[in-house]
Amino acid sequence: MTSFTQSTGTLVPLTATSPSAQAPSFTRSLPWIEDVAKIAPRDARALSKLFFDQLQFLEEGTHEYQYARNTLIEMNQTLVRFAASRFRNRGSGEMDDIVQVGTIGLIKAIDRFDLSRGVEFTSFAIPCIVGEIKRYFRDTTWAVHVPRRLQELRIDLARAKEELESDLGREPTVRELAAQLTLSVEEIIDGLVAANGYTADSLDPPRDTSDGLVRQRSRTYVDTVGGCDPAIELVDDFHALASLLAHLGERDRRIIQLRFGQEMTQSEIGHELGCSQMHISRLLTRILAQLRTGMLSDH
């Protein structure tokens, strides 16, 4: 069993045959760590391998299993703090929540880690922790629904903007952000627009309506909101109609386009298509009835 000095924490080497009096009776093959906070990161990595190696042979639910698992969680809190630092631009008041969520990701990583794969635990754990934090922001902090791709882009934009502002001494342009993130200008614009959905202001707080030394009657933002546009319902109708038109045959769509798009008469349409005016009239009646039925069923 490897010995550890006081500089890396108070560790008591244990063996199966000679347990230390300073350690609880349930420990057998693991060193007892009195103060995890004193362990240097380098030693924490070596100890983690030792604890993972023993954890796979311990029975879940036993005191020794819980000791090994909890010690791994405490020893690797530096990974959580490292991952959480990527989100520091969100404000110090939220950092405690980020660390707590990151710790959940760490616990999941510990429970899923397989030492036999030959992968360093650090390489496996960091993506798990960051992924858990991103899911937290995606699921709980956005005021409106925004695609996951744009939610993650908002984080990258905030970090790139902070770096460029530090280098340039001014706010970066869209093109400079695009070059920094190796994205197109259109993608950057989409990300900036989507970022507006991260928070939403209430309509109830009063506005500052002071005019010089004379303070006007307090008003809220909702006082400035206009009334409903009577034609707004047509927007839904147009969307529904567009879908129905897409399912028409090519000739039927052509007739609708000539009649209502170019405002041609039935006789003119018949001449265009080589049909009689009577035949065009019957076709229009059928097409409009089909569209009307579709509109009513959609609503």
Rank of each mutant, 00 (worst) to 15 (best):
T285S: 13
S3V: 04
D167Y: 00
S92M: 05
F113T: 03
T71F: 04
V225H: 15
Q6W: 09
V235R: 12
V130Y: 00
M1R: 10
G227I: 08
D97E: 13
F26T: 03
H299F: 10
M295C: 00
G249V: 05
T173I: 06
D236A: 13
K108V: 07
P31Q: 03
V235M: 08
G249M: 03
V235Q: 05
I98P: 07
K38P: 04
L291W: 07
V214F: 12
F52N: 01
R175H: 09
S184M: 04
T122F: 03
G294T: 08
F137C: 04
I110A: 02
A84G: 05
L213F: 10
R148I: 08
S184Q: 02
G249W: 01
A40T: 15
I269M: 07
E74C: 08
R219S: 11
E162A: 14
D111V: 09
T15K: 00
D201R: 04
T224I: 15
R259S: 09
F113N: 11
S267W: 11
T285M: 09
E132N: 12
L283M: 11
A231F: 09
K161Y: 01
K134R: 13
T122P: 06
E268G: 06
S267K: 05
S218H: 08
Q66E: 05
G270Q: 01
S48I: 14
Y67S: 00
A83E: 04
E120S: 07
Q56F: 00
L288H: 11
Q77L: 15
R286P: 02
R28S: 03
R217G: 13
G227E: 09
A178Q: 06
S116Y: 09
R117Q: 15
R135L: 06
K134Y: 02
S123Y: 12
N70V: 14
D223A: 12
E132P: 05
Q277S: 14
L177H: 06
A242C: 14
L30V: 12
A231D: 12
A37H: 07
G249F: 13
F121D: 01
R254C: 12
Y136A: 06
D229A: 15
S20I: 10
S123V: 12
R90Q: 13
R219H: 09
T103D: 00
N89A: 14
L203S: 03
Y198P: 00
T5C: 08
A46N: 08
S281K: 10
G197V: 08
F51K: 02
A194Y: 07
L30C: 03
L284R: 07
G102S: 09
K108W: 06
E162M: 08
I269P: 03
A46D: 03
A83I: 13
I188Q: 06
T78M: 15
W142K: 02
W32N: 02
H247E: 05
S218E: 13
I232W: 02
V214K: 08
G274E: 02
T8K: 11
E60A: 04
L283I: 05
A289L: 04
L157E: 07
Y67I: 00
E64R: 11
E64Y: 09
Q54G: 06
T15H: 03
I188N: 06
L244K: 03
Q266Y: 13
S184V: 01
A195F: 08
R149H: 13
Q180V: 02
M75I: 14
T293Q: 14
Y67M: 00
R28L: 09
V36W: 02
T220P: 01
E152C: 15
E34N: 09
A242V: 10
S29A: 05
H239Y: 11
Q66A: 13
E171V: 15
I232L: 15
T209R: 14
